[in-house]
Amino acid sequence: MNRRIRILIAKPGLDGHDRGAKIVARALSEAGMEVIYTGLHQTPERVVSAAVQESVDGIGLSILSGAHMTLIPKVLKLLKDKNSDDIFVFAGGIIPANDILKLKEMGVAEIFTPGAETTDIIDFVHRTVAREIRQ
């Protein structure tokens, strides 16, 4: 009676570099998870709507354009507005250390920068889902 983990992988904003997002999507699926992929050029509103409709455990956001300080807080806020902030948010991309601190304070569960290994991301998801269930 274990939950099958469901994760939404999204690329919010206009950045079209999806190499990392696709690798993560594939790696998570090969770790036995169901990964919903929404494609490029998503607004935060669409990302959050999709996450709620799909009742995912977590949302992975990939942003390489530098718009992370606008887009990620917006996703967090919309989740809260929709009473869905039990869905955890993690992010990947080119995100400077200062911004990582700020985003984590806002509630982002983890941020993976270039060079992160998919095994670390898989472990992170497993750990976070386990913690959510205990709570």
Binding site: D15, T43, S65, G66, A67, T70
Partner: peptide, 10 residues
């Protein structure tokens, strides 16, 4: 709206 956060970034 689609430009929000992206203006002047790349």
């Amino acid at each position: 709206p689609m430009a929000e956060g992206e203006v002047g970034k790349t």
